[in-house]
Design a protein around this nucleic acid. Sequence first.
DNA 1: CTAACAATGGAGAACGTTCTACACAATACC
DNA 2: GGTATTGTGTAGAACGTTCTCCATTGTTAG
Lengths: 336, 336
Amino acid sequence: MTSGRVTIADVARRAGVSTAAVSKVVRGAYGVSAEMQAKVTQAIDELGYRPHAAARALRGRTYTLGVMLSDTRNPFFPDIIEGVTGRLGDTEYQVLLGPGGIEPKTQARMTDAMIDRSMDGLILISPVMTDAELAAIAAAIPVVVVGRHGGAAAYDAVVDDDVMGAGLVVDHLVGLGHTRIAHITHLERARAQGLPHTVRAEGYRQAMRAHGLADDVLATSFTEEGGFEGARELLARDDRPTAIFAGADIAALGVLRAADEAGLSVPEDLSVAGYDNIGIASLKRISLTSVDQDGHVIGATAAQLLVERIEGRSRSVTSSVSPTLIVRGTTGPPRP
Amino acid sequence: MTSGRVTIADVARRAGVSTAAVSKVVRGAYGVSAEMQAKVTQAIDELGYRPHAAARALRGRTYTLGVMLSDTRNPFFPDIIEGVTGRLGDTEYQVLLGPGGIEPKTQARMTDAMIDRSMDGLILISPVMTDAELAAIAAAIPVVVVGRHGGAAAYDAVVDDDVMGAGLVVDHLVGLGHTRIAHITHLERARAQGLPHTVRAEGYRQAMRAHGLADDVLATSFTEEGGFEGARELLARDDRPTAIFAGADIAALGVLRAADEAGLSVPEDLSVAGYDNIGIASLKRISLTSVDQDGHVIGATAAQLLVERIEGRSRSVTSSVSPTLIVRGTTGPPRP
DNA sequence: CTAACAATGGAGAACGTTCTACACAATACC
DNA sequence: GGTATTGTGTAGAACGTTCTCCATTGTTAG
């Protein structure tokens, strides 16, 4: 062993055949006898040969899929990753993640880098670029976009049905007897269309209307502080709401703090619900009612669609994943 | 434009020079006149040329660094990533993350995959493989190991000074007047040596001894439930501790719940401290005293060491990052 | 018996870079 | 005026695969 790496030529020499034959066996291509198959497979095992992905890249596939993460702190991104890798576990594909940052510029740099590394396809999680940029990327490489409503013709999309999720919360609260239900959303500032918070707010409005109730949306931000400030404002009103639905769990935590400080007990004086079902929502001390997005299913679906695209499908698909409501201790009937 | 991708040959043709010349300019190599530099740079800009990483891989560098994550749910891994990318932001290197899973086998598969993709170096975060496997990987590619004590000659290591961190907590509690301080650790089950929880427990013991106090270590697990169970056992004792130091914040949350249920108020009846300073520790409603590991510094250091290794250093380095204690509302003087 | 065909294996040209070796010119030294 | 020396540019061979032909066998049909 001179240079470390075992190449296809080493295998060919060992098996006494040509490199072309080895390549055929490795790829499972047509035109290989059983005998050849056996010889080569044995040589591969003996030498511990693994194909060199970079060399493959120059001709065909790399069997590498890229997942661009817009925010590594996103609480359900681990679930999505697990869904992706789980779905791909028994295939030859490998998954690599690219931290894209939250700026359009850094995200573009990352997608470029992934394309330069000849990945076979890309999953973009909540990308913030414009539709035009997205289309340009999709023209260069198969793409599946996750978490952005209103997919385009050039790529596939997987979204949580945020309208439905918001509806589940409103239905639940109305079912408990609430009528004054406020919603805290994130202040719109990005140029990108179809971001989840917008859709959740719209779903909330639709559901309230369906129940014949007046909607009440306050825009702060999806942070603990944003939830706190929003709740404080809402709770200071004359006819304060009996329930607050925050568009994200992290904001719901701020709402809980505001309730604490106002001396209101939850859920007796105020019901609180969030969205995302982040890990700590299930801690007994928090026990936050929330909407769960099933990141596993989202990730698995995205992986599935991407592989289909790579292997030839050209018609574009948008898949909507239904969320479920997890009822916990922060919601209950209003005081009569 | 026929096939999409702009190659070095296209640039060479446009600038009227050889491909070798373009390559020199791109790499900033020696032997290029100012005039040549200008011509080529202009052609590159006009055509929007980007080097094809996979092709580069076959000869030299890929300018890609891999970070293997053992657990995507690890609460401070986003900080580490930010530290790494921040340190590398102004270089040519790109960072890709590989979800390695928590099994030795899947982690090995991921590191293999990264090597097959000709990455220039690897950062392994809390790998669970044996020292021998680690050494084998380090023989094939420059490696920096993060979060595992007792680094070896073949690779660099960055660790949090867990002994010091545990000491900070004990010193703080003793300073407040506590003498009965218990520690909850994680049940040892892995084959890997030098994992943080072991070192934290040892640091706790050392610090207690230094203060002339008796140590009291209980091993459950680093989960909310583990912290809860452990605390319940500790609090049922006759001379129950006045302070509990959990080796991880998630366990400390369980301790807080146990205190709630036992009707003990924090910090008057029981002081609680954690380790890791996870995001929610700073929420006002939790306000957990914790040890902060500064993931940014850890990540940045790891990136720095890896680049140095790649660029030629052969002597192995172990860097220890000092943690800091973040005092919040869950610790205070014991009741007299 | 020959033509046609299927099945199998191999030669060798890509793929887009890097990098060693060399060619050539201009300058410096004796 | 010849020989080093330096500076600048190019040719062309790698790197490890894939994949399109082509060559060689048998086999089958007529």
